[in-house]
């Protein structure tokens, strides 16, 4: 067995990235401020491979697409996923479609890395999740890890993938992003950070984690809670609360939105007959509806509820905490589902 060590979430990602860069000189990092944000990689790989970009997302993400087609393995950072709006054409009409357009003869091995998510009071242009919006586009893979070990393993898999992968790291799990955007060195602010997500055991040598394999984080009998990212940890907390009321909940961590691990989803639904999707991304036309739809298509009979973000994320902290899925909302939805 591979030796283990304890790493923080973002450390794990950069560590796996470093391993991939060491193994393959074609892997490079492009993005705004990467010279500082990825300083540990910069002093190992130099400025040609940790390439600082101007504030020109549409150009450098677009360039990432063809750089990948022409042989590089770029990991393009758009800082936070909200800024992907500026680069959307490169992703929607190019990265996602080249393989199909070329009759499968040309592919885009690019990773787009971005921080995502809220819970630290930065307002609705900086705290979105958007994985459902991205997952809507055929041709993209979208991964959302919830633990350091998954984050490193999925980053390595994303780099090794021959097709475009969107890699989203939640800011509440990633101490450097949380300090950058929320804490700013202050000891006067607090955040509801799930400890098991920010720090955890990781292999000394990374192996790629199969993309599209969900993980069952807790086995239960009465209902299945499905989520990604920080939502997984909120579900685990809720499941503990629910256990006190003799409700036994499974918690399924999808780990990737695309591909969606349907088999394990069906298994859990078959067992518990009740399904709740907890999604920090927007409710309408997103992950929660998709999960319900594929489960229905399979012919399963189950009752369903969802706890998602339904509106633009408000700046003020107490409203934000209500708008994003929280443990109370998950518990309330679970109890209501048990009763009907």
């Amino acid at each position: 067995m591979n030796k283990v060590r304890t790493l923080e979430f973002d450390e794990a990602i950069d560590d796996a990235l470093g391993q991939a860069m060491a193994a393959n000189p074609r892997v490079m990092v492009i993005g705004e401020d990467v010279g500082m944000i990825r300083h540990n990689l910069l002093v190992r790989f130099g400025r040609e491979r940790i390439k600082s970009a101007p504030i020109s997302e549409s150009a450098f993400v677009g360039a990432g697409v063809t750089a990948a087609m022409a042989g590089l393995r770029p990991v393009v950072e758009v800082m936070i996923v909200d800024f992907i709006g500026v680069a959307m054409d490169a992703i929607l009409n190019h990265a996602a479609k080249i393989k199909s357009f070329s009759g499968g003869k040309w592919n885009v091995p690019m990773v787009v890395r971005a921080a995502c998510g809220g819970g630290y009071g930065d307002g609705g242009q900086h705290e979105q999740s958007l994985w459902g919006w991205l997952a809507h586009i055929p041709g993209l893979t979208v991964v959302v890890p919830s633990t350091p070990a998954d984050a490193g393993g999925l980053m390595l898999a994303a780099i090794e993938s021959d097709d475009p992968v969107i890699f989203l790291e939640h800011k509440l799990l990633s101490p450097s992003w949380l300090d950058f955007m929320g804490r700013g060195g202050r000891s006067t602010v607090e955040f509801d950070v799930p400890p098991t997500g920010t720090m955890g055991e990781c292999p000394k040598k990374w192996q790629p984690l199969a993309i599209g394999k969900a993980a069952c984080r807790r086995e239960g009998e009465d209902l299945t809670l499905v989520s990604v990212g920080v939502g997984v940890h909120r579900c685990l907390e809720a499941a503990q609360e629910l256990a006190k009321q003799r409700i036994s909940a499974s918690v399924l961590d999808l780990r990737s939105v695309v591909p969606l691990d349907k088999d394990i989803l069906y298994e859990q639904i078959l067992k518990t007959k009740r399904l709740i999707v907890v999604d920090e991304d927007y409710q309408g036309f997103g992950l929660s509806g998709e999960v319900a739809a594929v489960a229905l298509e399979s012919g399963l009979k189950f009752s369903f509820a969802r706890v998602c973000t339904k509106q633009t994320i408000p700046f003020t902290r107490h409203l934000e905490d209500q708008v994003l899925p929280n443990t109370q909302r998950i518990c309330a939805a679970s109890i209501a589902l048990m009763q009907n």
Partner: peptide, 13 residues
């Protein structure tokens, strides 16, 4: 760390 760029590039970083 082992495996990476040459010393000149590392120094540059």
């Amino acid at each position: 760390k082992m495996h990476g760029s040459n010393v000149r590039k590392r120094m540059g970083g």
